[in-house]
Design a protein around this nucleic acid. Structure first.
Lengths: 341, 341
DNA sequence: CCCTGGCACTCGGACTGACTGAGTGCCAAG
DNA sequence: CTTGGCACTCAGTCAGTCCGAGTGCCAGGG
């Protein structure tokens, strides 16, 4: 059905269209690429490509434009990941090395990614449940108020204030602190929940009531913590090509990007640190993102287990090889930095 | 120069233009408002208003549109702050009361403000330097690494990891902790810096080297902490009226909004918790915001001292009375919530 | 002195029709 | 299977026309 030349034609169409933003016709196609045949032949090929649904023409007397399906084929079969230039690599490295803490790492990454791809960049903070506990700190604010501070190995710090049902002394807090840290430090947060539950048996029964309160707060922090944080940058890039890439207005896209729930769902697709996940146009779950493509991948301290995801959002007319390369590269560097911290 | 009727005319022009988004002519003006005179008279008034630079016409055969100067006069002299409906007040209250921690308060506020005004909302996190210290916690991560956690009375928590020049024991950390907290808890962060400096005299000289390291980190946190955080919401509102309000593209505006430095500078203008500050069009320092207006005010636990600012950014063609009322109301509620926490 | 109605003028926006050129689909021949 | 030729379609552009909103100005009246 689709012989090699037709695939070449499709690739050429995608590449030309991405770079020129204009429907591409048979004539310029043979001029710009060495296809070795005449425009008429290309026209025939384009005809079958259109029949198969890979390309379409905006109106009768215009050239062809790739469809979502066409981009999909291009991404899956026709494109090779474009390696970044050494200059780019060095820029990434330098830029990220200056980071002082986790917030800074995330912020720098997201800006960097936006700048590299000239698209909207999204970086998820390292997930709590997928990180391990480095330390739990209990701070006695008053007799009945305790601040629980959770520090993970990815450098993330979360705190919650607990109202205690019963007053505690500084000493009691100290013993709780030791008990907790002895138990769950170094464990995955997901496991920590169960470890905490059977802790009460081993401690002074007098402190039990308070313990339960603290425990439930901890659990709440890690389970009910749906508000996983994300950082966003480069929204101005959406307005770059005028309204050329988006039908009428970028409003629905901006709205979708403001819903962190939506973003997290997008990022959820690419939890694997090895592969780069691409979601094109209509493949996206969210209504407002039907005209966009999303390129994501996971990142983490080691290559196998991802602690979170990052990626970009842009028009379907996007430089996929470049975007995929940038996303992958930034993910690797971020993972590396996390591993060092 | 400008008698009462001319001012009435200006007010009418601003109000009509804001609601219809169309240049307003003399005829519709007398139809929609009870001015008691004929269109011809209005035309004369409009003529002088134009001579004075308060209004302008986009092209010859069109109606008039307010200039920045016109909006300025309107805001200063002609508008009365529109009180919010009780339904709106209740909505604000309900929405903010559900907040669980500082992050939540800020996020809810910014979304609420965006929704109320249908503009871009900006909320600054309570400033570190203007808050007081509730507690300083030192966590010994390893022999030479210490985590410093700073908790303010506004509920903000900041942490930094310090590399110590010399190993410390758990006991030494404990004594440092007590020394710090006895010294600076309850003081303004701005004062804390000086209090810490003369601390060394009173402590075990052996711990000095470490102390200096910790101290400088603390200072760094509060002084060099230029990266005051801000939350942003409602950017999709910029794309609402198409490109009607912004010449060509909203890109420069989006770009400006991504620069947190710019945002902070905008918010810096309105540090007073009593008054609402309005900056119109060309009055804005930043290039990309020449076509926007900014409405800000300070907020804080009590009415006199503001710990941070919040506000909105929108096109100069904006419902100023409504925006000012919403900004003020949200600021008050946020202040109230902070006072309770 | 100010207000008013009348009138000529300007000019953007909408509509029309003609033309151009890019691009296609199809067909018959190599 | 490829190719050149040809008729066809249609978006975009340009010029011309018309309409109406809105203005500025002026002379007359309270």
């Amino acid at each position: 059905m689709l012989d090699d030349r037709k695939l070449d034609v499709l690739r050429a169409i995608v590449e030309d269209y991405v770079s020129t933003n204009e429907p591409v016709g048979s004539k310029v196609l043979v001029e710009r690429h060495q296809l070795g045949v005449s425009p008429a032949t290309i026209r025939n090929d384009m005809g079958t490509l259109e029949d198969e649904g890979y390309i379409t023409q905006p109106h009768t007397s215009a050239g062809r434009v790739p469809t979502d399906k066409g981009y999909r084929l291009f991404v899956d079969k026709l494109s090779t990941v474009k390696p970044l230039s050494t200059a780019e690599r060095r820029a990434i490295e330098e830029f990220l090395l200056g980071a002082v803490d986790l917030d800074d790492v995330v912020n720098r990454s997201v800006r960097l990614l936006a700048q590299l791809t000239r698209q909207v960049a999204v970086v998820q903070y390292p997930s709590l449940t997928r990180s391990s506990v480095r330390h739990v700190e209990l701070v006695r604010l008053s007799e009945t108020r305790l601040m629980v501070v959770l520090i993970t190995d990815t450098g993330r710090v979360e705190q919650r204030i607990v109202e205690l049902p019963k007053a505690v002394t500084e000493d009691e807090v100290a013993s709780l602190r030791t008990a907790f840290n002895g138990r769950i430090a170094g464990r995955k947060l997901a496991d920590a929940a169960s470890l905490v539950t059977d802790l009460p048996e081993t401690v002074d029964p007098a402190a039990r009531a308070n313990l339960v309160a603290v425990m439930s707060t901890l659990l709440e922090t890690l389970v009910e913590r749906v508000d996983e944080r994300v950082a966003l940058a480069g929204t101005a890039n959406l307005a770059r090509s005028g309204a050329l890439d988006f039908p009428g207005t970028i409003r629905p896209v901006l709205e979708a990007l403001e819903e962190h729930v939506v973003l997290l769902r997008l990022l959820g697709e690419g939890t694997d640190a090895q592969t780069v996940h691409v979601s094109i146009g209509g493949e996206n779950p969210h209504e407002g993102l039907q005209t966009t493509s999303v390129v994501t991948t996971g990142y983490g301290a080691d290559a196998t287990t991802a602690v979170a995801s990052l990626g970009i959002v842009g028009p379907t007319r996007m430089d996929y090889p470049g975007a995929m390369a940038a996303v992958r590269a930034v993910a690797r560097y971020v993972g590396q930095i996390l591993a060092e911290a």
